[in-house]
C-alpha cells in the first residue's frame, strides 16, 4: 500500500525530470526551467513526506532509529545538494553542467529509489499495516 503510493510518486517525479531534460535538449530553455522547477519542488516534497511523516512513524513503530531511515535521510541530503547544483547550472545557462550533474543525480536518485522500493517501503507496509491507510491519507493532505 505504502509501496504503491510512494512508487507512483517516484515515477511522477521522474516524469518531470524527463520533460525538463527533453525540453533543454530541444533548446526550449523556458520550458526546461519550468519542468525542472516542478521536478525540484515535487522531489523535495517527496523527501519531506518521508522525513516528516513516514520515517518518524516507522521509527516509532519499530524502534529502529539508526537504521535504514537514517541512511535514507543522508542520501536525501546528497540528492538535495545535487538538485541545488543543477538549479544553479540551469539558471546560469550552463547547460552542459546541467546535463553532466544530471547524469550523476539520476543514477544516484534511481539507486536510492530502488533501495526504498525493494526494502524500505515493504518493511514499512509490514510495520504500519493497520495504520498504513491513515498514513497515506496524511501524506496526500501534505500535498494540499
Amino acid at each position: 500500500m505504502i509501496l504503491e503510493f510512494m512508487r507512483d510518486d517516484h515515477r511522477a517525479c521522474d516524469d518531470f525530470y524527463a520533460k525538463a531534460e527533453n525540453a533543454l535538449s530541444a533548446k526550449e530553455v523556458d520550458n526546461a526551467k519550468e519542468f525542472f522547477e516542478t521536478f525540484y519542488r515535487v522531489t523535495n516534497h517527496h523527501f519531506d513526506m518521508e522525513e516528516r511523516e513516514l520515517f518518524i512513524a516507522f521509527e516509532q513503530r519499530t524502534g529502529m532509529t539508526g537504521g535504514p531511515t537514517q541512511m535514507m535521510r543522508y542520501e536525501h541530503q546528497q540528492l538535495r545538494s545535487l538538485l541545488e547544483s543543477m538549479k544553479s547550472a540551469l539558471n546560469e545557462n550552463r547547460h552542459n553542467d546541467f546535463f553532466g550533474i544530471g547524469e550523476s543525480m539520476m543514477i544516484m536518485l534511481q539507486q536510492h529509489n530502488m533501495k526504498e522500493e525493494q526494502m524500505l517501503y515493504p518493511m514499512m507496509d509490514r510495520a504500519l499495516e493497520d495504520s498504513a491507510e491513515g498514513m497515506i491519507q496524511k501524506l496526500r493532505e501534505m500535498a494540499k
Binding site: 537504521g67 542520501e75 533501495k115 526494502m119
Partner: peptide, 8 residues
C-alpha cells in the same frame, strides 16, 4: 540486513 542502505 540493512547495511546496503548505507553509502558508507
Amino acid at each position: 540486513m540493512y547495511n546496503g542502505l548505507s553509502f558508507e
